[in-house]
């Protein structure tokens, strides 16, 4: 898949989780540009600066959690494409994330095929 100039914001406090997501996206295709944030506050700032095409957002993070960051990013850009990637997926959290505008939820630990499905659906015709 051609991902040339597709900007991907990966927001997770775990350096390993960020690496695994970047590896998974890189396996989908070439050319993506990655921006990494390690908490919600950084994610909001980096979103403003970079206007990424897709955001992967963890929930449990220091400083500003994923739900707050999701809400802020959506208030800046209502079209933001945000995928929540978390090990915590209670019904109420899922509901909240969807209400706030998350497009999808991936339970950790994720399979690379789940990331591939998302990219094929969103950028398959790219």
């Amino acid at each position: 898949m051609d991902l040339t100039n597709i900007k991907v914001l990966v927001c997770d406090d775990s350096v390993l989780a960020r690496k695994q997501l970047i590896d998974a996206v890189s396996e989908c295709g070439d050319g993506a540009i990655f921006v990494e944030a390690k908490n919600g506050a950084e994610a909001v700032e980096l979103y403003k600066e970079n206007k990424p095409d897709i955001v992967f957002m963890d929930i449990v993070m220091p400083e500003k959690d994923g739900t707050e960051a999701l809400e802020e990013i959506k208030s800046i850009d209502s079209d933001a494409l945000i995928i929540v990637v978390s090990s915590v997926g209670t019904q109420s959290q899922l509901k909240k994330a969807i209400q706030l505008g998350a497009k999808d939820f991936i339970q950790k630990p994720f399979e690379k095929s789940q990331i591939k499905e998302i990219f094929e659906l969103r950028f398959g015709g790219n």
């Binding site: 350096v15 989780a17 449990v60 978390s86 997926g89 950790k108 630990p109």
Partner: peptide, 12 residues
């Protein structure tokens, strides 16, 4: 990070 992720996964 892997140790933290495992604990986070279990608790999640």
């Amino acid at each position: 990070a892997a140790m933290e992720d495992f604990l986070n996964l279990l608790n999640g």
